[in-house]
Amino acid sequence: MRGRAHKFGDDINTDYIISGKYKFKTLDMEELARHVMEDLDPEFYHKIRPGDFIVAGWNFGCGSSREQAPLVIKHARIGAVLAKSFARIFFRNAINTGLPVVECDTDQIEAGDELEVDLARGVVENLTKGISIPIKPLPPVMLKILEDGGLIAHFQKYGGFKLEGV
């Protein structure tokens, strides 16, 4: 995956990712995606290009654990979310919906940096700064679920969990 970094701070809760005021107006994920991160940066959706990354600090996805939050990020065509840590429910919802989430030290990443993320190798290459940042590896089964596009797609493909050879 390759894209630009869009940097946010610590404790980005799910209400910042997608405001509750939109949750009850529509279930259309493409419409909701137009409002991703709007409370923190009203122009965010217009700044991003497909494959770009949200980069944050500690505890990304905390709060109400809106199940739409990772889906909205995915529908905004964000390649992955990189953070120092994630709220556990958000982390699992992200994997289940097919949104890559990467735990790494984000201090060496600035807004606008060009990044390349390789989940299999376990590294983020900051191409702007010419540095490599190791990532916390995901278990093979989570990598497989991501590769298949999320838990539903994985189950449809295999009729359940495919664990052999993983």
Rank of each mutant, 00 (worst) to 15 (best):
K47F: 10
V166S: 05
R4I: 08
I12S: 00
C104N: 04
A83E: 01
L127D: 07
N96A: 07
I48P: 14
K157F: 03
L27D: 10
E164C: 15
S65L: 09
K74E: 03
K129M: 13
D15P: 02
I12F: 00
I95G: 01
F90Q: 02
E110M: 10
L143W: 02
H75K: 10
G57I: 15
F53Y: 05
I133T: 08
Q108V: 09
E67Y: 07
H35A: 08
E38W: 08
F161K: 12
E103S: 15
S85F: 01
G61P: 03
H46P: 15
I73E: 01
A120Q: 06
F8I: 00
L119A: 03
K21Q: 05
D11Q: 15
F91Y: 12
Q156V: 07
R66S: 09
D52S: 08
K136C: 10
A5H: 03
E125F: 08
V124T: 13
P137D: 09
I73A: 05
D113V: 10
T97C: 05
K23R: 13
F44I: 02
G61S: 15
L32E: 01
F53H: 07
P134E: 14
D11C: 12
A87V: 06
L115V: 02
G98E: 01
H154T: 02
I95H: 00
E125L: 12
K7C: 10
Y158C: 13
D52I: 14
V124C: 04
H35L: 10
F86D: 00
D105P: 01
G98V: 01
V72T: 04
K47T: 12
K23C: 13
V101K: 00
A153N: 05
A69P: 04
D148Q: 07
I145Y: 01
G79T: 03
G150T: 03
H46Q: 06
L127C: 15
G122W: 00
G20T: 11
L163I: 13
E38M: 10
I131H: 12
K23W: 07
V123N: 06
K84V: 03
F155V: 06
L163R: 14
W58A: 15
F8W: 03
K47Q: 14
D10F: 11
S132Y: 14
N93H: 11
R77Q: 07
Q108A: 10
G159K: 04
L32W: 02
I95M: 05
Q108W: 13
V141D: 05
I18M: 08
I18P: 00
P100E: 07
H154W: 13
S132E: 13
P50Q: 11
V36L: 08
D10H: 08
T106L: 07
G150D: 05
R4E: 09
V81D: 02
G57L: 11
E103H: 03
D148A: 12
G122I: 01
P139L: 08
K162N: 11
